[in-house]
Simulated assay, not measured.
Amino acid sequence: MEDESTGDLVRRAGRGDIDAWRGLVDRYSRLLCAIAHSYGLSGADADDVMQTTWLRLVERLTLLRDPARAGTWLAVTARRESLATLRRLGRERPLQGYGPSVTGPHHVVFGRDLAASVGAALETIPPRCRRLLELFVASPPFSYSEISAALEIPVGSVGPTRARCLTHLRRQLDGVT
């Protein structure tokens, strides 16, 4: 199934082949999850985005003009669903996972200060940079091709864009604007 092209999987799934559906789900679920998380969604909200994205594909599967580009179609749809979820919730969520990793009173205080500083700096950089950096620190980390699809940038631009975003973040943390 890994050697089979996305276009072939889509065509087979359109004919009701359950193995083709499993192949598509295996191939793209991690990407859809990354996209939902890149918008600050987690838990049930991220799951809802993924489920709705798959539902949209089911509804339009036989209407796709280029079945080989179904991965891109899924990524765009997941971004739109993530934004719709944020609008429905009426708020944006703070970044998660930047707390201290070591315990003890002084580590807790330092960790909170560091998390607050990084969180504040992240709020000042462009949203696209924030999303890119979040995808890099996700656990497990996402590949360049997954990040490329999630952010709609060429794979060759992921590294240089990451470097520029980190420079932006460092300048904010150092108080240089």
Rank of each mutant, 00 (worst) to 15 (best):
Leu9His: 10
Pro105Ile: 08
Asp113Met: 15
His107Gly: 12
Val158Cys: 03
Arg80Gly: 05
Ile18Cys: 11
Thr161Gln: 08
Leu31Arg: 13
Thr161Glu: 03
Ala121Arg: 14
Leu169Lys: 10
Cys129Pro: 10
Asp113Asn: 15
Val155Glu: 15
Thr52Pro: 05
Ser117Arg: 15
Glu134Ser: 13
Thr77Glu: 03
Ala78Met: 01
His106Phe: 14
His168Gly: 08
Ile18Glu: 14
Ala36Ser: 02
Leu32Lys: 01
Leu83Asp: 06
Arg164His: 13
Ser157Pro: 03
Ile18Phe: 13
Arg60Thr: 09
Val49Glu: 00
Val102Ala: 15
Ser145Lys: 14
Glu123Phe: 04
Thr167Pro: 05
Thr124Val: 08
His107Phe: 14
Glu123Val: 03
Tyr98Lys: 04
Glu81Met: 13
Pro141Phe: 03
Leu9Ile: 11
Ser29Tyr: 02
Gly119Val: 00
Tyr39Asp: 02
Asp48Leu: 10
Gln96His: 06
Arg112Thr: 01
Ala150Cys: 03
Ala120Asp: 08
Glu59Met: 07
Leu32Ser: 02
Ala121Lys: 15
Gln96Phe: 04
Leu41His: 11
Arg88Ile: 04
Gly16Arg: 14
Arg130Ser: 12
Asp45Tyr: 05
Arg93Gln: 10
Gly104Arg: 07
Arg12Tyr: 06
Pro154Tyr: 04
Pro94Ser: 07
Gly156Glu: 13
Ala75Gln: 04
Ile18Ala: 15
Val118Pro: 02
Ser101Pro: 01
Tyr144Met: 06
Glu4His: 08
Asp174Leu: 13
Leu151Pro: 00
Trp73Val: 07
Arg128Lys: 01
Met50His: 02
Asp17Tyr: 06
Pro126Ser: 14
Arg79Thr: 00
Glu4Tyr: 07
Thr62Asp: 07
Arg131Val: 01
Leu89Ala: 11
Asp174Ile: 04
Pro127Phe: 12
Pro141Gln: 03
Arg56Ile: 11
Tyr39Leu: 07
Ile153Thr: 06
Ala70Phe: 08
Leu74Gln: 10
Pro105His: 05
Phe110Ala: 14
Ala78Trp: 01
Leu166His: 03
Gly156Arg: 15
Leu41Ile: 07
Arg56His: 13
Ala78His: 00
Arg170Asn: 07
Ser139Trp: 06
Leu57Cys: 10
Thr124Pro: 05
Val58Trp: 14
Ala84Ser: 09
Phe142Thr: 05
His37Arg: 06
Arg93Ile: 02
Cys129Arg: 12
Gly90Cys: 13
Gly99Asp: 08
Leu114His: 09
Glu4Cys: 10
Gly159Arg: 10
Arg15Cys: 07
Pro126Glu: 15
Gln51Cys: 12
Ala163Gln: 11
Thr52Trp: 05
Glu2Trp: 05
Arg56Lys: 12
Glu2Thr: 11
Val158Gly: 02
Gly159Leu: 12
Pro126Ala: 15
Thr103Tyr: 11
Leu32Trp: 00
Asp19Asn: 12
Arg88Asp: 08
Tyr28Ile: 07
Arg11His: 02
Ala84Phe: 05
Asp26Phe: 14
Arg56Tyr: 06
Arg15Asn: 15
Tyr28Thr: 14
Gly40Gln: 00
Glu92Arg: 15
Leu41Ser: 09
Asp48Thr: 10
